[in-house]
Write a protein that binds this DNA or RNA. Structure first.
Length: 495
DNA sequence: TGAAATGTTGGGGCG
DNA sequence: ACGCCCCAACATTTC
């Protein structure tokens, strides 16, 4: 610990520019690497490197790239307001860092740590090589409340169950305070070469991102606005609102957090202070309930650090022999929102259109894929990865393994969501369903959750042609559930 | 951050 | 008034 902190402090250095290598920390506030570089009182070169080929098979999907494009533009604009700018390059990180260091006469490179397996491996190699070339590489934490090695069990092993993890976190006491944004940024006498953000080719061709632009404002300001909106009108009703996909009852901060447009230390402080100010037991409970979600994010990142193989393989090894289905057409019906189960289809279409899905609905569609269709959780994880604007390897991995029952603190496999009951319980009036399934919009609340069970006259009156304008169910839930439980029992029996 | 079956309890109707 | 039954509401158990 002491050694780590010592390497994090920046000694006075000669006046050559410091490179700040920005990755999933596209913000000026609470950015430890940027703050450390600025504190040296010498010029700073903010640098983003686009190198998806170096990120192993988990290269960002198209929705994520759309977000990144917008976030980089926002960051560049904020830097320009301070008289600085963002340098953008593409290529292997090490090569680019060495080139930029040479072009700018820089000898120090700062960055904030990442925790995904491939990023760790790359950063370690980069750090080693840079040092081998006489350059100074300094790393900081701006992504997490605690480092993964800071919140383990007393015996030194990591927590695998959330509740004790959460309690240990709270016992640990104060979360570090967010760092202020730099008040000014000194420019180098000559900027290194930069490519244009356009040139990275992150924007979708052809442009299908209208739904994204309407739903989101990427960038640090958009992130802070989302947090303020949530604090003002979401947080007090969070415990009910979080489960109603028809309303904006959640913070919708996930993509902002993923790209580091806002950090967990800032949201923690903001919400804690608000709770103290309100001094109301019910508000306090809501605030804690939401901070718990931030802790789940923390838990996911600690898990992926300690168990890097879980991006592809189940944490519980016995699940390696689970007998999954292999059916491309079932997978396709799930991906495109054509399963015949309205709550599933509405969620999958919300995902496709906006790059995001309400968390309650994520659990429903995930359970449906894994239990009803018995398709491998990895196929769901991959689709989410390719389509979510908040695609995050740690959160995505933990979430899917939780649903499949093969991960840390996982739901028991026999816990099977009934899509009909979930739909009635969490979208009783069918408002969410109608928003995403216009072909069912004229069905009333009694039948919209299960059009396949509606009397023919009702369907006709609502203009619904089962198997024509809207699909019949691709599987029957009761039978599918039984098959899933049988497969689970076979796995447990070692058959 | 399940669902469904089973068990328990207590109010009210009724003989 | 009392006991009995019904059953809704809630709690517990099981998968």
């Amino acid at each position: 610990m002491l050694a780590r902190q010592a390497t994090s402090s920046v000694a006075a250095m000669p006046a050559t520019p410091t490179i700040v290598w920005l990755r999933a920390d596209l913000r000026l506030t609470d950015n430890a690497a940027l703050a450390a570089a600025t504190a040296r009182g010498i010029p700073v070169i903010p640098l983003f490197i686009w190198s998806p080929a170096q990120e192993d098979q988990w290269a960002p999907g198209a929705a994520s790239q759309w977000w990144l494009d917008a976030s980089l533009r926002a960051l560049d604009a904020s830097l320009r307001e301070m008289g600085s700018r963002l340098i953008v390059r593409h290529g292997p990180a090490l090569e680019v860092l060495r080139d930029v260091a040479r072009e700018s006469g820089s000898d120090t490179i700062c960055w904030n740590r990442l925790y995904e397996p491939a990023a760790i491996a790359r950063d370690r190699a980069v750090k080693h090589e840079l040092r081998g070339h006489g350059l100074v590489a300094q790393n900081f934490n701006s992504a997490l409340l605690f480092e993964p090695w800071e919140n383990g069990k007393d015996d030194g092993t990591p927590y695998k169950v959330f509740t004790p993890f959460w309690k240990a976190m709270l016992r640990r006491g104060a979360v570090a305070l967010p760092l202020a944004a730099p008040s000014r940024l000194l420019c180098p006498s000559k900027w290194p070469r930069s490519e244009s953000i356009d040139g990275l080719g992150l924007r979708p061709q052809p442009d299908w991102a209208a739904g994204m632009r309407e739903a989101w404002t990427p960038g640090e300001r958009g992130a802070r606005a989302a947090l303020e909106r949530f604090c003002n009108d979401g947080l007090s009703g969070y415990e009910q609102g979080r489960n109603s996909p028809a309303i904006t009852g959640t913070s919708r901060l996930s993509p902002h957090l993923h790209f580091g447009e806002i950090g967990p230390r800032e949201v923690w402080k903001t919400v804690r202070e608000l709770a103290i100010e309100r001094n109301d037991a019910r508000f306090d409970a809501a605030a804690e309930s939401w901070l718990r979600q931030i802790a789940w994010r923390e838990f996911a990142h600690h898990l992926i650090f300690h168990f890097p193989h879980t991006t592809d393989a189940p944490l519980r090894p016995e699940f390696a022999r689970f007998e999954w289905n292999d059916d491309e057409s079932l997978l396709s019906s799930w991906q495109h929102g054509l399963t015949g189960y309205p709550i599933v289809d509405a969620g999958m279409r919300e995902l496709w259109t906006t790059g995001w899905m309400h968390n309650r609905v994520r659990m429903i569609v995930a359970s449906f894929l894994v239990k009803d269709l018995r398709l491998p959780w990895q196929a769901g994880a991959r689709w989410f990865w390719d389509t979510l604007v908040d695609a995050d390897l740690a959160n995505n991995t933990m979430g899917w393994q939780w649903t499949a029952g093969c991960g840390a603190d996982a739901a028991p496999y026999f816990r099977v969501f009934n899509p009909l009951l979930q739909s009635r319980k969490f979208d009783p009036d069918g408002i969410y369903l109608r928003r995403w399934l216009p072909e069912l919009a004229r069905l009333d609340a009694k039948w919209i959750h299960e059009p396949h069970a509606a009397p023919p006259l009702v369907l006709e009156a609502a203009g619904v042609g089962l198997g024509d304008t809207y699909p019949a169910p691709v599987v029957a839930h009761d039978g599918a559930k039984r098959l899933a439980l049988e497969a689970y029992q076979a796995m447990m029996a070692g058959r």
